[in-house]
Simulated assay, not measured.
Amino acid sequence: MAVSTPTPDDIAELLLSCRYGDTEDIQHFITRFGPAPLNDARDDNRNTVLHMVCANGHTDALDLLLPLVAPPLLAAQNAAQSTALHWAALNRHLAVAQRLVRHPGGPGIDLIDLKNGAGRSPLGEAENAGWEEGAKWFVEVMHLDEGAKEDELHPAEGPESIEVEIQDAEGQVAKMTIGQPTPDVMPPSSVTT
């Protein structure tokens, strides 16, 4: 049986079904047209089926779609350069965020580092939305200082001090040195009573 090609109206209906989490209609679309058109379906703002499902927290629809879409769709950016994970973070959908990041064969935790047009990562969106639970989970699973070289971890001041760089959600970087002795403070072993 040959699979037909969806019309623009069919695509619009699919995207609405994803927005509302209507798994029966999504399945009907897949049965009628196959899974391939899922990867190319976009609205006027370049939102994908994953943007629609994830923005609205529809885990059942996400579970239906994830095995059928190409892994690069998980990192697809809309017109504002936001991914489906940005939308899940903005709308505080932890189960959705976890499914996106943990999807086998997908980009994984690299999704957490992608920035949108506003310069925010999904972690930044979670922080911006005041979603502490999601921000905490993102920080727990992401690789911190993964690319740091050994000499960056042990600065020239000596082994008793550590230089730290922290980047906030807006991309601002703060540097500080921890453990560097100050000249006017005597070490505890030198203090006499």
Rank of each mutant, 00 (worst) to 15 (best):
P67W: 15
L68T: 03
G105M: 01
G106Q: 05
W131A: 14
L123I: 01
L100R: 06
P107L: 07
P122L: 02
V96D: 13
A129V: 13
E125T: 06
D110I: 03
A61Q: 14
G124H: 04
G105A: 00
A84L: 11
A84V: 12
E127D: 05
I112D: 09
P107I: 07
H103L: 01
V96K: 04
L74D: 05
A84K: 11
S82W: 04
R99A: 15
S82A: 09
P107R: 01
N91I: 08
P72V: 04
A126L: 07
Q98N: 01
H86M: 12
D113S: 08
A61D: 12
R99P: 10
P67G: 14
E127Y: 00
R92V: 11
A118M: 03
A89M: 11
R120Q: 06
A76R: 08
A97Q: 07
Q81W: 15
T83I: 14
S82I: 04
A97V: 13
G117E: 06
P107H: 04
D110W: 02
N78V: 11
L90D: 14
V101W: 04
L114N: 02
R120L: 12
T83R: 10
N128R: 10
R120T: 02
V96A: 11
A95H: 05
L64F: 12
E133D: 01
L68C: 08
E132V: 11
E132S: 10
G124N: 03
N78E: 13
G130N: 02
E125L: 07
L74K: 04
